[in-house]
Amino acid sequence: MSDIVTVEDVPASKDGPAKRSLRPVLRSRTGIIVGVLILLALVGMSYLVGVLRPYSPTEVAGDPFTGLDGTHWMGTDDLGRDYFVRLCIAGRTSLSIAVFAALLSLVVGSMIGLAAGLQGGRLDALLMAGVDLLLSFPSILLALAAITVFSPTRKTLVIVLAVVSIPQFARVVRARCLELREREFILSARISGVRAPVIAVKHLLPNVFPLMMVQLANTAAIVILLESSLSYLGLGVQPPTPSWGRMIFESQNYMADSPWLPLGPAGALLLSSIGWSLIGEGFSVSRRSVV
């Protein structure tokens, strides 16, 4: 348009932009709400299952492979443990590892990204070299190597999965910061002698925040799959603690007779991944309409 360089001096209308952005926000809100509901349902199941069903996930509750019936909703596994209870309890493991790993990578990755993006120069080059080094290995390979060295406890899993997610975080946050640091309000702050950490917190963070939320949800979706892959390979949380990846691995031999055994944890995995993705997508749509 011709008027890029000229701006009118009438007060910007209050409802104009709001009206325009209503549609995507609504759509994104629905997405976010559905995503949150899915995840809440999964979490709720994993914690309320003790009230619903009288079994513990590790006790032998009946014969092996009872099939679907009233006492064992999803039957029992090869050792006679209640499969539904195990499926629900496994959600605690998978979901909590995903949340904590994503949060940890958010904190560390964002700090790296903010520092590199705001400071630039040598610090930026150094940090990004480290990040690129991490990025150049497939994350599953890195995780495998790390888990083989350290024992696969829940804590190490969180740390390892966080570390492999950090590079993406740092990259995304840095890219946005590089863009923002040339904006006039950041320059104004620098001219006024505002110190770099204050600029980072006051000016960069609020403008990067929506992006961080998108990345957080996306990371959680990836981490949940990664954790299951590790469990499937026997490098996740160790038995008898149930986890979805491990359950898929253990049940695949009985797939022909009892297809619901692998399908249960696979479906739960899919649902939780979709839940996180919906939230991530929702945030990114609403971000576009806001910024």
Partner: peptide, 20 residues
């Protein structure tokens, strides 16, 4: 010293943090 020299930029849209 910086505060003794201040600046006004060309693009009014960019000179204010939209979230503050």
């Amino acid at each position: 010293l910086r505060r003794r020299v201040q600046m006004v930029f060309q693009h009014p849209a960019g000179s204010l943090n939209p979230r503050l």
